[in-house]
Amino acid sequence: MEVPILKQGDYLIASIQSALSDSDLVQLRDALVEKVGRFRSRGVIVDVTVLDVMDSFSTRILRDLAHMIRLRGARTVIVGVQPEVAFTMVQLGLRLEGIATALDLEEGLAYLDETGEKES
């Protein structure tokens, strides 16, 4: 199941539509890291609202993704982590350290706009 990646202005938005297998997630990471350079994007939003499970693997891939995007000169926001998922993640000891999070797509866009303004 491929995740659609939308380009909106300076940003890329990856909106996950259904449960993802490990390889889907790796594919998403690689696609975003590639596209962020091609479109000269300044920010990436990964919307995980539909994910009912974020385990050690998906957390690691998301973290790698954010760090790789950072190295490519853009910033990442993970949006839409569900309350139950967040609760489970911290119990498992999984963190998204140093990675921005926001409630939903709207908040994620606002975050990118604000941090972008501050930087320029």
Binding site: V79, V81, P83, V85, A86, F87, M89, V90, Q91, R95, L96, T101, A102, L103, E107, Y111
Partner: peptide, 12 residues
């Protein structure tokens, strides 16, 4: 500590 971290995952 977990509450603090989980809240942050939601963006708060």
């Amino acid at each position: 500590v977990q509450t603090v971290e989980a809240s942050r995952l939601l963006g708060a």
